[in-house]
Design a binder for these strands. Structure first.
Length: 357
DNA sequence: TAAACGTGGAA
DNA sequence: TTTCCAAGTTT
């Protein structure tokens, strides 16, 4: 009997060789062999949470423009930070970002250890090792969605997520234990991201181009695109609301600020009804209007949040002078000042929906 | 552990 | 149109 061919194990050297040729050029990345600025790494990591590279790019550049250093960000007013973040979503990230900048500024710089980073607001189990590895060369493998997918396929782990998390974390750590990986922790982490983003993609992975195609058990199994297995998501309930778009004689809009935490926390909005599971009748809705007026339905906005869909009707009215009681905890904004207002995308759509009609 | 937490692009 | 997905964290 001839000896069995040795089972090939994925080697860091193969991935790093591929990365050196095919790495993506991204605004927050330094040149090959150079560790990037920790501020840039941190800022990009927070922005990239559950968010695409394409969406982050313009925001990242704008933030560096407005806040060139972590100290500048720490000293900026929170309204300016929220305004700069408006449209990116998950606004708790922006609130934590500002709090983290203040903490880092007070510390005199970013902690260089996973534990030190993990203690900061907005930095969790993934982001702490990500910053440590990418910015400081700490030999750790941050496990994000890319790394989970690559590992699930590489080792044919078919336990459904999220139960598979501990298994996948062990697999990722095993890859990172390779001496070649430990010699280049920053590049190794980013190489895994790039592999997951450009080759080992969720659908139609380009296995023929993969530096790990030989040892990949998922590919050998014939259906790597089937991995990782995920539990079915619950269906999204629908909610209904009405926003009141009130203009004064100068065309200024009546706005208010949402509570500091929770959905769209700290962002600006049109006054309106609560968002409930039943559509609103006129009689139910009018008590929530900021003033009594000749409200006209001028538009409707459909918006998808993570855990519910929202159908938001927009009712509009105009009043030359806004009564003082309507301005309790509210304020007026001229149209040319709305660009600097921390308005979430939903409210920009609502304002636009009322404006033309 | 599970639910809350935004948005836009691709298939 | 619908569903899935994107460098997750907090409670």
């Amino acid at each position: 009997m001839p000896p069995e061919p040795p089972v090939a194990a994925p080697e860091a050297a193969d991935l790093l060789r591929w990365y050196d040729r095919h790495r993506r050029q991204l605004p927050w990345r330094a040149e090959t062999g150079v560790l990037p600025d920790p501020y840039h790494v941190w800022l990009s990591e927070i922005m990239l949470q559950q968010t695409t590279v394409a969406a982050v790019g313009p925001y990242f550049r704008r933030f560096l423009d407005l806040f060139p250093t972590v100290e500048a960000l720490a000293e900026a007013p929170s309204e300016q930070v929220m305004s700069a973040w408006a449209g990116l979503g998950y606004y708790a990230r922006a609130r934590n970002l500002h709090a983290c900048a203040k903490a880092v500024s007070a510390l005199g710089g970013f902690p260089r250890t996973i534990e030190g980073l993990r203690a900061l607001p907005g930095i969790g189990a993934y982001t702490a090792p990500a910053i440590a590895a990418i910015a400081f060369g700490v030999p750790a493998v941050p496990v994000d969605g890319n790394v989970e997918r690559v590992c699930a396929r590489l080792f044919a782990i078919d336990t459904p997520l999220p139960a598979a998390r501990p298994l996948l974390a062990r697999a990722a750590a095993a890859l990172g234990a390779d001496p070649q990986a430990r010699a280049r922790p920053s590049d190794f982490a980013q190489a895994l991201f790039d592999l997951g983003a450009t080759i080992c993609t969720p659908r139609n992975p380009a296995c023929a181009l993969c530096p790990w195609r030989e040892p990949c058990l998922g590919r050998q199994g014939g259906a790597p695109e089937r991995l990782p297995v995920k539990v079915a998501r619950k269906d999204r309930p629908e909610r209904y609301g009405i926003s009141f778009r009130l203009e004064d004689g100068q065309g200024r809009l009546l706005l208010q600020t949402r509570p500091p935490r929770g959905l769209l926390g700290g962002m600006s909005e049109l006054p309106g009804t609560p968002w409930r599971t039943e559509p609103w009748s006129e009689a139910d809705a009018l008590p929530h209007a900021p003033i009594s007026a000749d409200w006209r339905a001028t538009g409707s906005v459909r918006h998808i949040f993570t855990h519910f869909g929202l159908t938001l009707a927009v009712w509009s009215a105009r009043r030359d002078r806004i009564p003082a009681e309507a301005l309790e905890n509210r304020f007026l904004r001229a149209p040319d000042a709305l660009g600097k207002e921390p308005l979430p995308t939903l409210m920009r759509k609502a304002i636009a929906a009322g404006g033309g009609g």
